[in-house]
Design a protein around this nucleic acid. Structure first.
Length: 422
RNA sequence: GGAGAGAUGCCGGAGUGGUCGAACGGGCCUGACUUGAAAUCAGGUAGCCUGCGUUGAGUAGGCUCGGGGGUUCGAAUCCCUCUCUCUCCGCCA
């Protein structure tokens, strides 16, 4: 959500930036500003009347103290008209505020200046590619076949027990999940992130805080009886950890990491893109989150991106990083990099991480600020997958497949798995 | 799930209808004393919104004592409701 004060003072820049997200922002922005003007005028009138009423109340108190009940009664009679008027103004103000909120909520985060224009993924910009060769499909089974064949993943029984998109990981397959999670957490800790195990279900305020509500509510599983959402990513509980708080500047940067299963409805997905591990309803992920001073957030974004690239590299996978164009970015992000691993059998890139700077989009919703001198300022929040498991496993199974069908375990995982081959 | 108690500023803790945004204590900040420090003394120490001013100098007003609603000229104080915490019982990994 964009700060209304910013929208008021930097209207043109914001409209220009928003246009990159492939929407026509001007009507919404103008509407917001109109509601804001109305809101402020109502508020001023209301506050003046409240001040008068407060003054009358004080006088009544004074009169009663002096046992002058006659004067008190006279004053009391003057209050009714004010009270009626105040009540009416309050109602009007509430209505305008609701309308303003409704419009503000529909405005996405304006992209950063460095975000390229473009409408779809085709216009994303490759900013880095590793030097590892892009292996051919020849002689390689796609991960869903090799995984079934070696008894690492059971898609069919997962579908029986829960539905499509809920695989069982079996034996070494399950151990590989555990190894990856632990490897990612250990790496994050070395990089200075504090490990957290977050709740996997969150309330509506939390889902609103990071921007999942109201925009993406169809993406989340919901438990109506308890009004709780299953998290689509650990970003949601981790970023909301400090919601509604004022941090001391010395606490920053705050660096959190956490493992969680992630639940996504993925309604409407189908076809080859969702085959095997490409897209699941439940998957494992380690997430990293940073809460930083605004002036540092873009250098932190680069550091996080490099950190994530390093992880993929340590798993001995070919990868590249793309800078998302305006039209392909999420609603809440100001700038996003996707890190993609090469899938030899599918001959395509798989998104294994998304690293984003949200600037104040989330902190404004969450009222997350830090003390800066005499006043307070909204922090910038960032997050990134480090990493999401399924597509990493897919790339791993395809890349490290041996001619005899065995899977070579990358050196960094061998201490966790206690084996060189699966 | 049942019964009871509670939620106040950075922390502890008072306050049961009238200058209460809030006593008192602690912490922290500034200043004085000191060669320096401690001790002592004095002052300061919440956030949000709006107007004017400034462009992070302020100033006037409004709102906020867990959240929401109500009673009243007036509520931290009374009523309703929700959330959370604690104690006891039940259940349970």
């Amino acid at each position: 959500m964009i700060e209304i004060q910013r929208l008021r003072t930097q209207t043109d820049q914001i409209i220009k930036a928003l246009a990159k997200k492939d929407i026509d922002p001007a009507p919404l922005v103008e509407q917001a500003i109109a509601y804001d003007t109305e809101r402020r005028s109502l508020q001023t009138t209301l506050q003046n009347q409240r001040a008068s009423l407060n003054d009358l109340s004080r006088q009544i108190g004074q009169a009663l103290k002096e046992k002058d009940s006659l004067r008190a009664d006279t004053l009391r009679q003057q209050t009714q008209a004010l009270k009626d008027s105040i009540q009416q103004l309050e109602k009007q103000l509430q209505e305008v505020e609701a309308k303003l909120e409704e419009v503000l909520i529909r405005l996405p985060n304006p992209p950063h200046d460095s975000v390229p224009e473009g409408r779809s993924a085709a216009e994303n910009v490759v900013v880095f590619q590793s030097e590892r060769p892009l292996l051919s499909a020849e002689g390689r089974l796609p991960h869903w076949e090799i995984a079934e064949k070696r008894g690492l993943i059971d898609f069919a029984r997962g579908a029986k027990v829960s539905g499509s998109g809920f695989p069982f990981y079996v034996g070494d397959g399950a151990k590989l999940q555990r190894a990856l999670i632990q490897f990612f957490l250990d790496e994050a800790e070395k990089a200075g992130y504090l490990e957290m195990e977050p709740p996997f279900l969150v309330n509506t305020d939390t889902a609103f805080g990071t921007g999942q509500l109201p925009d993406k509510d169809a993406q989340m599983y919901y438990v109506p009886l308890d009004e709780l959402y299953l998290i689509p990513t650990a970003e949601v509980p981790l970023t909301n950890y400090y919601r509604d708080e004022i941090l001391e500047e010395a606490q920053l940067p705050i660096k959190l990491c956490g493992y969680s299963p992630c639940f996504r409805r993925e309604a409407g997905s189908y076809g080859k893109d969702v085959r095997g591990l490409n897209r699941l309803h439940q998957f494992d992920k380690v997430e990293i989150v940073q809460i930083v001073q605004p002036e540092r957030s873009y250098e932190v974004l680069e550091a996080m991106r490099e950190y994530v690239q390093g992880l993929v590299d340590k798993l001995e996978l070919a990868y590249r990083t793309v800078l998302l164009c305006g039209g392909d970015m999420s609603f809440a992000s100001a700038k996003t990099y996707d890190v993609e691993a090469w899938s030899p059998a599918q001959q395509r890139w798989l998104e294994v991480s998304s690293v984003s700077n949200f600037e104040t989009f989330q902190s404004y919703r969450m009222k997350l600020r830090y003390r800066k001198g005499k006043s307070t300022e909204l922090v910038h929040t960032l997050n990134g997958s480090a990493l999401a498991l399924p597509r990493i496993v897919a790339a791993l199974l395809e890349t490290h497949q041996m001619p005899d069908g065995r899977i070579r375990v990358p050196a960094v995982l061998q201490p966790y798995l206690q084996k060189a081959y699966l």
